[in-house]
């Protein structure tokens, strides 16, 4: 039996047009041994949830620069849950004010990262979050 790979969906919801940050994170996670499904720009929450379901990912990473994180993130989480994927961890990257970060974490987002975030740290956080889901699933 082959070793289990962490699968991550990286998506860029909203209408703002560049995905450099998302691509940097995608590459870093690949280099950390994960399988990264990259879906590109202008994804609606519905498209993201559909892709997360078909790809059976462990983690969804949202890159949000539009400022709409407080509406987009909860919507994605709601759709994941509706699909029975409440175990999928959601991480957010973007320019997010501190008070919004606190609110997102309270909503159940697993991590929020600014533009200068250390990608090793992100990979480590993802690994930890996935390990946590698995141990609680086994228990």
């Amino acid at each position: 039996m082959s070793e289990r790979k962490i699968r991550v969906l990286i998506a860029k919801p909203g209408l703002d047009g560049h995905d450099r940050g998302a691509k940097v994170v995608a590459r870093a996670l690949r280099d950390a041994g994960m399988e990264v499904i990259y879906t590109g720009l202008r994804q609606t929450p519905e498209m993201i949830a559909e892709a997360a379901l078909q790809e059976d990912v462990d983690v969804v990473g949202l890159s949000i620069l539009s400022g709409a994180h407080l509406t987009l993130a909860p919507r994605v989480m709601e759709l994941l849950k509706a699909n029975g994927q409440e175990n999928v961890r959601v991480f957010i990257g973007g320019i997010i004010p501190d008070e919004d970060t606190a609110q997102l974490l309270a909503l159940g987002v697993s991590g929020v990262y600014g533009p200068g975030a250390n990608t090793d740290e992100i990979a480590g956080d993802i690994r930890q979050a996935v390990a946590q889901i698995e141990s609680s699933a086994e228990a």
Partner: peptide
């Protein structure tokens, strides 16, 4: 090297969403 991968084909398949 890492055993990881970037799977980017969905980018061109957005017409099929939904």
């Amino acid at each position: 090297f890492s055993g990881g991968a970037i799977l980017g084909d969905r980018v061109r398949m957005r017409d099929l969403a939904g």
